[in-house]
């Protein structure tokens, strides 16, 4: 199921909150930890509980329902709490750790790279690591190079980790429930620019399968592959292209490991062209990976070179004057597509 017939609407941030809440209700081994996920920690005696409800209010209300033994605010010690969550996950808990921004991964990457990703393999299959890292991506807020990157391709490169990039409330809830129930470590990337995106979400718990893409717009002339917020940039571009008689199909990739190559290839078999729209930087990226796979396995389908619209190979600049150029936008997608029809 790639869409829903539900009529109730939620924002992405509410869908994430509901997924965590429902899984914590269902399974008492689920715990969550991170910086300011409740906020004002330790001041219950002053009547202060849940002061922030998370930096983007995705974890609001959890501490009231589940208490401060399962909803754990942490010191600013990412290596410690990410590693601790991995350790707890490998010894009987289902642990979620929130890394406030993916840019902070540098501080705790060793825990991901050398523990979460490799333990099961190195230990000959003795452990499962049901660990979820929630983290945030996305530029466009004037937050400069240490709070704006979209480093998901780094994680897709690491064997042993899974990763998902939801694009709307429905996929956010379904993919997060899948991630929490998954017995492998999963990184869940929330785009800062999607939190207020609204859409229908079933009230009951459900899973959206990790590793499955979906088509959000049918078309016959070109396949636009989007990740996270870029799916909607691609979709907007598709609407514009339709006015010029180019009928674009939009594929929402949703998972960065495993990658649903077959879904992309199936679309390209029909459209004969592919453009990947990716907010991450271009070298060794999801965009280059998908283009390579299409070239390898879908060469005979292609009427034009697989192409990409991505950030440049630079850090994210602060000034809006530069950040606006840095980010992929509809115009760049449209121009790139039109070049394929010359």
């Amino acid at each position: 199921m790639t869409t829903t017939t539900a009529t109730r609407e939620l924002q992405v941030r509410e869908a994430i909150n509901e997924a965590i809440r429902q899984e914590m209700e269902r399974d008492e081994t689920v715990i969550i930890m991170g910086e300011e996920i409740a906020g004002g920690a330790g001041r219950e005696h002053l009547g202060i509980v849940d002061a922030w409800g998370g930096p983007f209010r995705t974890t609001v209300g959890l501490i009231q329902q589940f208490g401060n033994q399962r909803v754990l605010d942490t010191p600013l010690s990412e290596a410690a709490f990410v590693g601790t969550a991995i350790g707890a996950a490998s010894t009987g808990m289902r642990a979620i750790a929130e890394l406030m921004f993916v840019d902070f991964i540098g501080v705790c990457m060793d825990q991901m790279l050398n523990n979460a990703a490799k333990m099961r393999y190195m230990f000959g299959g003795q452990v499962k690591v049901p660990f979820v890292m929630l983290t945030r991506i996305g530029a466009g807020f004037g937050s400069a190079a240490q709070h704006s990157e979209s480093y998901y391709s780094i994680f897709s490169h690491i064997p042993g980790l899974k990763g998902v990039v939801p694009s709307d409330p429905y996929t956010a809830k379904g993919l997060l429930i899948s991630a929490i129930r998954d017995d492998d470590p999963v990184v869940f990337f929330e785009h800062k620019g999607l939190y207020t995106n609204r859409g229908p979400v079933p009230e009951e718990p459900y899973t959206y399968p990790i590793g499955k893409a979906r088509t959000v717009r049918q078309g016959s002339d070109v396949t636009l592959v989007g990740l996270s917020k870029m799916t909607w940039i691609a979709n907007n571009a598709a609407e514009e292209l339709a006015k010029d008689g180019i009928n674009a199909e939009v594929v929402d990739l949703l998972s960065i490991s495993p990658i649903d190559y077959d879904h992309v290839l199936e679309s390209v078999r029909k459209t004969h062209r592919v453009v990947v729209v990716d907010e991450d930087t271009p070298v060794c990226s999801m965009a280059s990976e998908i283009c390579a796979r299409v070239a390898e396995e879908g060469f005979d389908y292609l009427d034009a070179p697989p192409s990409r619209v991505t950030a440049p190979h630079t850090p994210v600049p602060y000034s809006r004057a530069l950040e606006n150029i840095y980010l992929p936008n509809e115009t760049r997608v449209i121009n790139t597509v039109k070049n394929l029809f010359r």
């Binding site: 300011e36 906020g39 002061a51 605010d73 942490t74 600013l76």
Partner: peptide, 11 residues
């Protein structure tokens, strides 16, 4: 305070 977290909790 570290963001909203008081030192008496975190240190």
């Amino acid at each position: 305070y570290a963001e909203s977290t008081p030192v008496e909790y975190a240190l």
